[in-house]
Amino acid sequence: MRRRATLLALEALAFLAALWAAPRAGALWHALFPEVARPTYLQDPWFALLGSHLALSLGAVAIAAAIGLPAGILATRPGGRRLRPVLDAAFSLAQGLPPVAAIALALPLLGFGTAPTLLALVLYAALPFLRAAVSGLEAVPPAALDAATGLGMSPWQRLWEVELPLARPVLLSGLRLAVTLSVATTAVGAVAGAPCLGTPIVTGLANANPSYVLQGALFTAWLALLLDRALALLAAPLAPGEAP
């Protein structure tokens, strides 16, 4: 595992190096796209785009977790169980609506820029958290819960000491899914004016500049893969049965 972590760190460094090198690699872009007049993307600093992409996606994930996790916990409490059908219904509806549509619908309400993308992001990213919380908490062995209550744990203690630790692997996979969804949807948000690594793609498509498109797509895809593997590494050693 340590080896994988080191490799991942090296890859992240390579990513950052590539971001630094991209605006300086004019020769490369000219060679790849000889017919394009201005193949080097210089409109925004790549690091600024990376920064706003991460801020938007990860910020949304944090907000989504703050909404989705408590909602999931509530839905598994005796009182909240009646909400389950409505939550399942919400999942169903959300799955039929692509994220770009959600961003588009939020646009008239919130105008261009980061806001509509943020709204769509929070709503979409909350769903994996909700689902993970519900399925993770429901999978806790009832015998363990009975014993916990019988030994004298209060409902809060039971949640904190028994239920959440046992649900942790599922919760972490929900986090991974939420981050993947978020990074991808943020990239799409470029069409609504959100500054991110998707912006060069959209600009390139609008101006028939395949070089911009390639660079934007390359870095967007690479970022998504890096984050996914980083989270997989985080989740891996914390499976139940191993020392915490």
Partner: peptide, 11 residues
């Protein structure tokens, strides 16, 4: 309190 299914905490 001891129960039939034991209920040890797996984690």
């Amino acid at each position: 309190y001891v129960i039939q299914s034991v209920g040890l905490f797996p984690h």
